[in-house]
Amino acid sequence: MKRNRRQSQHNWRERTRRALSPTIYLRRHAQVALDSLGRLYRNRVAAIMTTAVIGIALALPSGLYLLLENLGRLSDAWDGQTSLSVFLDDAVSEESADKLARQLSGWTEIGDVELITPAQALDEFGKQSGLGSALAALDENPLPTVLVVTPTNGHLDPAAASALQKKLAALPETALAQLDLEWVQRLSAMLDIARRGILVIGALLALAVLLVIGNTIRLEIQNRREEIIVTKLIGATNGFVRRPFLYSGIWYGVLGAAIAWLLVEAGFWLLSGPVARLAGLYHSDFSLQTLPAPLLGTLLASGLLLGLLGSWLAVGRHLRAIEPR
């Protein structure tokens, strides 16, 4: 008796297995994915509004993140060449300055020393500021001799750099030793805080996307209640009933991410003109970098995951309750 029962169970499973070869299974998934997309297209007004909400929610953190990345790139460009300017006393002659420079380059923590004589400095200043003719009218050169000291790679960090600064300031020839790019370090510290802030905003907005998708799918489940009951009566498994809703969620997420991408691109396109003009004023060829491929991939993937997760939550909560009566 017991064996008979098991055998008949086995037969029934066989019947369902046989029909589901892997190719059919995959084709079925593709079919359901397309059907879900078609359903979105048929309800396109509502679908566009939902995806636009998702798009805006995803565009905010991605846009802010990208802005920070650009700022970070700007400070990185300077960060690499942290240097110290040592302004020498007026009394120091050019020869002794040259001697000092050679002496300093012998220090273990110093990689490179560049000597800028007052004449060179005046020349460069005249060229860059466009005040050449006005400067020529000066009786004497007001600029000091400067040694630009670049630490070796091992002494670039803030602590080592400021230790070096103190050491240089103590030299008798030194009038002033200045660690140049302290503000870059402050900027990068600020960027770190901003990054953390964006993480928080991003997490909150991701939660919002999750809720929007979950609620949209919940409404869709309620609209298709009759269909769910009929298909369950005809022998649909929970998986079969669940699938179209999961694909709808995925489409919402991915299309929302695509809209977010377009919004970010458009925003940066609007900013690029003014930024280029500003960079021009600083004699920099800096330009805003738009979404790079890996980041775009991350954006689309998070859209997909949020969609899947949001619909999964809605489906898990509401589909079980709909059974034939």
């Binding site: 169970q9 029934w12 499973r13 019947r15 369902t16 369950k232 009566l233 005809i234």
Partner: peptide, 9 residues
């Protein structure tokens, strides 16, 4: 879990 397969018959 097995109800759907019974209903298909």
């Amino acid at each position: 879990r097995r109800i759907p397969y019974i209903r298909r018959k």
